[in-house]
Design a protein around this nucleic acid. Structure first.
Lengths: 207, 207
DNA sequence: GACCGATTTGACCGCTCGGTCAAAATCACG
DNA sequence: CGTGATTTTGACCGAGCGGTCAAATCGGTC
């Protein structure tokens, strides 16, 4: 996804297997909790063989993180300033919840990175991410000022979308412990529709 | 906070120093990322001396986690079924946000535990926490059915409170990266007031 | 100040981990 | 089938880790 140096069939297969295995292990145990032995085993390789494809644990983690950040930022990028405000925001919410449901490991890997102080992702956060968020915040701000959605703080609105959607992936264990065997997602979808509907509503006056 | 076996002055001082240091280190680096050497050093002790007070890393982590869970559950326990619904829920939100601001390390330690699949906290989640949440959810459900607050899914409402408030502690690095030097908390407080105000509102019918 | 339990320490152990390396096995291709 | 490059492996290293232990030191009490 980043660059594509000359790849043999074997390389393509093994790199993919390693990235998949590493995503699994890093997400479940964090950077320091993950071991190369475990990742290699999950990928069906020996540890030295894994290190033939990725120079170091660090490099492997970074490769995953970079791919991940693209996936993560795409839906926000897709928010269209020319579109209908409510549809654009609700679409982003829906997409983000889908990603929590379909890519919980990616979400947890990212959460791990941030929780530990973003030692590897910090530059991207302060650069690319901040720029993108500021840009979209300005758009939302415009919509709000034009009265096309209710009064909102655009930055905190975006934080809220992240928090509410990612919660279902990152804290899945807790959610499941409380909801029992019930699948939380149909409920969550309806609930977030309701929540952001209320937030974006243009307040009426009087009874 | 849990039990109080005979304690000398020295014991009290050192145990407190260790717990404080361990909270710091566990929150910042996770269970596996934390080392006893580092914790001991932060507490001003040698590693064997630390182990004189806590049998093992595991035991130390557990001691912190238990104290933490009490602190964590208290505000939800304090929600009064006899009180005014909006005030009770908004009070809980406010209290929870305060805790993110004043105890971010506790929040991150807890988040770390859940992210890793709650290997140590699972029983509490499925027992005490689930019971408490179900109880309060029933209360909220009653309020909603009585028309004293708008229609809400009580479980998802509680998840939302957790997600929105804890986000400011757990993802602090990201929030700060985007907000620059601005203190996020005054804004967050006003925003959450606005958000939950809208959610709990009893919907009017069109003009 | 002598005594005894509480506290502290330095040396050490066994294990795991990330990473290296040279040799072996495999593969692609003429 | 031969050959050179690619891929794989087993043996190994050094550092860091959690934890142990016996000996030393300290602190309160008579």
């Amino acid at each position: 996804m980043t660059d594509t140096p000359p790849q043999t069939r074997i390389q393509a297969r093994n790199r993919a297997a390693i990235l998949e295995a590493a995503l699994e292990v890093f997400a479940a145990r964090g950077f320091r909790g993950a071991t190369l032995d475990r990742i290699a085993q999950a990928a069906g390789l020996s540890k030295p063989n894994l290190l033939y494809y990725f120079r170091s644990k660090e490099a492997l983690h970074l490769a995953i993180l970079q791919d991940l950040l693209e996936l993560w930022l795409a839906p926000l990028r897709a928010m269209d300033p020319e579109g209908e405000p409510r549809a654009q925001i609700m679409g982003y919410v829906r997409k983000k919840l889908e990603m929590s449901r379909d890519h919980p490991r990616e979400s947890r890997l990212f959460a791990n990175e941030i929780l530990q102080g973003a030692p590897r992702a910090r530059p991207v956060l302060e650069g690319e991410l901040k720029a993108l968020v500021d840009e979209k915040a300005a758009v939302i701000s415009g919509w709000s000022a034009a009265g096309r959605i209710g009064p909102v703080d655009p930055h905190h609105l975006i934080f809220s979308i992240w928090a509410l959607t990612q919660h279902y992936a990152d804290f899945e264990v807790q959610v499941r412990a409380i909801m029992g065997d019930t699948d939380p997602y149909p409920g969550a979808e309806a609930w977030l529709e309701r929540v952001f509907g209320a937030i974006l509503d243009i307040p009426h006056h009087g009874p």
